[in-house]
Design a protein around this nucleic acid. Structure first.
Lengths: 148, 148
DNA sequence: CTCCAATACTTGATTCATTCAAGAAAATGG
DNA sequence: CCATTTTCTTGAATGAATCAAGTATTGGAG
C-alpha cells in the first residue's frame, strides 16, 4: 500500500497541488477499489470529518482527469473509482449483487481489441465489461440463472 | 423497417400485452437507434401526444426485460436504447461528441471473449465499448488528440 | 358480446447523484 | 511573508429516474 509520501509524489508528478482532501481521497480509493462516491466520502471523513461532498467530487474529477484514478460505471450503477490505472485491465460485474472484480487484460495496452469495422472512428481504447455471477451469488442460488 | 403488425407480433411473442404506448416506443427505438429516454418520449409523442413520461419509462423497462430492447449507457451518458438485439454486437463511442455507432461482433454469440482469469465468476456476456473519435470530430479537429 | 381480473397508464410528488455558484481558505512561487 | 491562483465550503439547483395512488385498458372467461 502506498504511503502518504507516495501520494504526494503522485500529485506533484501530475502537476496538482497537494492538499489534505486529495491525499485522503487517493488513500481511500487505494483502500476501497471500485468504491462509489458516497463510500469514498465516508472513508475520507474518517480522517477529515469536515470535508464537503463537493470537495470529494472535485477531487475525484481532478484526479481522474490527471490519470491518477479511473472512473467506471457499469449499467445500473453510480460512478465508481479505482486507483489501478495504466495497465488497461478490465472488469467483471455480478448481475445479481453488483460486485466488481478486476480482470487482467491479455494484451495490456490500449486498444487491446480491434473492431472488425470501425465505422470510420479512430479508436484508442477497447473497454471490456464481463457480466456474470460472482462466487457468493453462485453459492447462494446455484439453480437460478441470471437474466440475459 | 418493421410494420405495426410486426411490433404487435413481437409483443405477443414475448407474452406482453399490446398497447399503443408499447407499439409507439418500439417504433421510436427502431427509428432512432441509441436514442436516450427523452428523445424516445418526444418521438412517441408525435403519434401519441399525451403519453406520460412514466409510461415510456415503464415500457422501456418491460421491453428491455423481455429482450425486445437493449439498454446501453456509456460512461457520462444517460440510458440509451436500441432495438438490435440477439446478435451480441458492440459499440464505438466518440469521446468528443458522444456519438455511438454499432460494431459487429466477430463471434456473434455470448460470451464472445474469455477472461484470462474470471475471479470465480460465471461469465455469460462480454460487453465491449470502443472509445475514439467519430469521423465528424476527426474532420473538425484533425490535430487535437482526445483525452486518454 | 359482456364482464372480470390483471396489467398498464396517468398524475403528481419524491429521491438522489451530480453540478452550479459565490465567497472563504489554503497552496505554491517569488 | 505576500500575492496570485487554485481549491474548498456552504447552500442551492438540476435532472434522470423512481415511487405511489388511483384510473383506464387489455385479453381471457363466461
Amino acid at each position: 500500500m502506498p504511503t502518504t509520501a507516495d501520494f504526494e509524489r503522485m500529485l506533484r508528478g501530475a502537476a496538482l497541488r497537494v492538499t489534505r482532501p486529495r491525499l485522503a481521497v487517493l488513500s481511500a480509493v487505494h483502500d476501497l477499489p471500485h468504491a462509489d462516491t458516497d463510500s469514498i466520502i465516508n472513508a475520507v471523513r474518517k480522517t477529515l470529518p469536515d470535508v464537503s461532498h463537493q470537495a470529494v467530487y472535485d477531487v475525484l474529477r481532478a484526479l481522474t482527469n490527471a490519470g491518477l484514478l479511473r472512473r467506471i460505471q457499469p449499467l445500473g450503477s453510480v460512478a465508481r473509482y479505482e486507483a489501478r490505472v495504466g495497465d488497461n485491465h478490465h472488469h467483471v460485474v455480478c448481475r445479481m449483487c453488483g460486485a466488481i472484480a478486476d480482470v487482467d487484460c491479455a494484451v495490456g495496452e490500449k486498444p487491446c481489441l480491434t473492431a472488425v469495422d470501425d465505422a470510420g472512428y479512430e479508436i484508442d481504447e477497447a473497454e471490456v465489461i464481463y457480466w456474470g455471477r460472482c462466487p457468493k451469488c453462485r453459492a447462494k442460488e446455484p439453480a437460478s440463472q441470471p437474466r440475459q
